[in-house]
Computed example of a mutant assay.
Amino acid sequence: MRKVVVAAYSDDWKKKFDEEARELQKIFGIEILMIHHIGSTSVNGLSAKPIIDMMPVVRDITKIDTYNEAMIAIGYEPRGENGLPGRRYFQKGGDQRTHHVHMYEIGNGEIDRHIAFRDYLRMHANAAKEYADLKEALAKQFPYDIESYINGKEHLASEIEREALRWFREFSYSSIKGVEIC
């Protein structure tokens, strides 16, 4: 049984992302257009479960399954779509997870959703603190119940996501129009 652990932010998380991104780039080569560090470990100062979430954006999602053996060779478990159509999901580390890889084809709307959530928390310290405080409290309340932990943060995460997407669209639209937003 996995224990729900929420740890204080670590500078090592960026280094672990960078190292793993290089490994994924070696495997997938030109199929990967970019790799984003997403999730709580990508937000400086935010407490998180110490699992690095990565989002490679690929040219053609239908080709990704042909790389499953190479991913297994570096410790990943291929999980297919894992409940989200258009995604390919891999996890590394078994019960002691270290990385989650969420792959999407360029143009998939999930890409903006993940980036909006990350960037909103990076730019809005109050929302990030509220989210971190809730995750820490839930981890203490449900140390061996990942489902209750996830369900407990769902409402706040959805609120932040809605606000983040609104903010992201306004930011993107303003950027297109040449308005500088600081």
Score class of each variant (00 low, 15 high):
68 N>M: 02
144 Y>A: 11
64 I>G: 03
140 K>R: 13
83 G>W: 14
158 S>K: 14
165 L>K: 15
146 I>S: 13
77 E>D: 05
88 R>E: 12
121 L>R: 05
159 E>Y: 09
63 K>F: 02
130 E>F: 01
66 T>E: 09
114 H>I: 00
138 L>T: 09
105 E>Y: 11
144 Y>L: 12
137 A>P: 00
64 I>N: 00
136 E>T: 14
148 S>W: 01
131 Y>W: 10
110 E>M: 08
99 H>P: 04
82 N>C: 13
152 G>L: 08
77 E>K: 12
96 Q>D: 14
137 A>W: 01
114 H>W: 04
118 R>C: 06
135 K>N: 09
136 E>K: 14
87 R>K: 06
72 I>D: 01
94 G>H: 02
135 K>Q: 07
121 L>K: 13
82 N>R: 08
124 H>V: 02
159 E>W: 12
153 K>T: 10
85 P>Y: 13
71 M>R: 08
71 M>P: 07
137 A>F: 08
109 G>R: 05
122 R>S: 04
103 M>I: 10
152 G>D: 02
159 E>K: 14
76 Y>V: 11
94 G>Y: 03
123 M>Y: 06
115 I>M: 04
158 S>V: 05
152 G>K: 08
82 N>Y: 15
137 A>Y: 05
123 M>C: 12
154 E>R: 15
97 R>G: 12
126 N>G: 00
153 K>E: 03
107 G>D: 15
111 I>L: 08
165 L>W: 10
142 F>S: 00
139 A>R: 08
116 A>P: 14
121 L>Y: 05
130 E>Q: 06
63 K>N: 07
130 E>G: 03
127 A>W: 02
65 D>N: 15
106 I>M: 13
157 A>V: 07
155 H>T: 15
159 E>D: 03
146 I>K: 11
80 G>D: 04
167 W>S: 03
143 P>E: 01
155 H>N: 12
145 D>P: 07
79 R>K: 14
136 E>M: 07
89 Y>H: 08
114 H>L: 02
111 I>F: 10
150 I>R: 12
146 I>P: 06
116 A>E: 10
77 E>R: 14
98 T>K: 14
153 K>F: 05
121 L>T: 09
133 D>I: 00
115 I>Y: 11
65 D>M: 08
129 K>F: 00
82 N>P: 02
136 E>F: 01
76 Y>M: 01
123 M>D: 15
149 Y>R: 03
86 G>T: 12
82 N>D: 15
85 P>V: 13
64 I>P: 00
108 N>T: 03
87 R>H: 07
95 D>R: 02
156 L>I: 03
134 L>S: 03
102 H>L: 05
80 G>V: 05
66 T>I: 02
88 R>Q: 07
